Computed example of a mutant assay.
Amino acid sequence: MNKRYIVTANAARARIFAHQAGVVREVETLVHPEGRLHTGDLRTGGKGEADDSATHSPRQSGNDDATMEKHAAFFAKEVADYMRQARTQGKADEFIIAAAPHFLGLLRQKLDKPTQECVIHTLDKDLSGASEEDLAEKFRPPLG
């Protein structure tokens, strides 16, 4: 019987579930809090303390996007590394990935070839908040 992992992810959190015999159980959660913060928060250590000049000037979005992209790419690599290790350690030989559309693209870029070949289904939807029961229902194999 194949060992299947369902990976649900966005730029801030990835949850990994084992999916066997129609039962889904969470085995790991990877968190990347930087993916959730605004760049202004990152520069001030997330406490929201800023010098006066920052509070009076409008936020510049060009830099925010570049920083968020860098964090998302870094986290995508972390998730891809986790998947590669699960494959090489024999914990999983099939993957289903359900991720926020942009993050799914980043994750695909970071997967090595052998792990890519183990991905049997992808869904460009953020299901990182879904319950085990919801995932079991969504990815139940067709009968017959």
Rank of each mutant, 00 (worst) to 15 (best):
K3R: 15
Y5I: 08
I6R: 09
I6E: 05
V7F: 08
N10D: 15
A11K: 13
A12W: 01
A12H: 11
R13L: 15
F17G: 02
A21E: 13
G22I: 09
E26Q: 15
T29Q: 13
L30C: 00
L30K: 07
V31M: 04
V31E: 14
P33V: 12
E34S: 07
E34A: 11
E34H: 04
T39H: 13
L42P: 00
R43P: 00
T44P: 00
G46M: 08
K47R: 12
G48Q: 11
G48H: 07
E49Y: 08
E49T: 07
A50N: 05
D52C: 00
D52I: 00
T55A: 12
R59T: 13
S61M: 13
G62Y: 02
N63Y: 07
D64G: 04
A66T: 10
T67D: 08
H71V: 10
A73F: 00
F75W: 07
F75R: 05
E78H: 03
E78D: 12
R84Y: 06
R84M: 11
A86S: 11
R87N: 08
Q89D: 14
K91P: 01
E94H: 12
E94L: 07
E94Y: 04
I97K: 01
I97L: 11
A99R: 06
A99S: 10
P101C: 09
H102P: 01
L104W: 03
G105W: 03
L106P: 00
K113W: 03
P114Y: 03
T115H: 02
E117N: 14
I120D: 00
H121I: 05
T122E: 15
D124P: 14
K125D: 10
S128L: 03
G129F: 10
E133T: 14
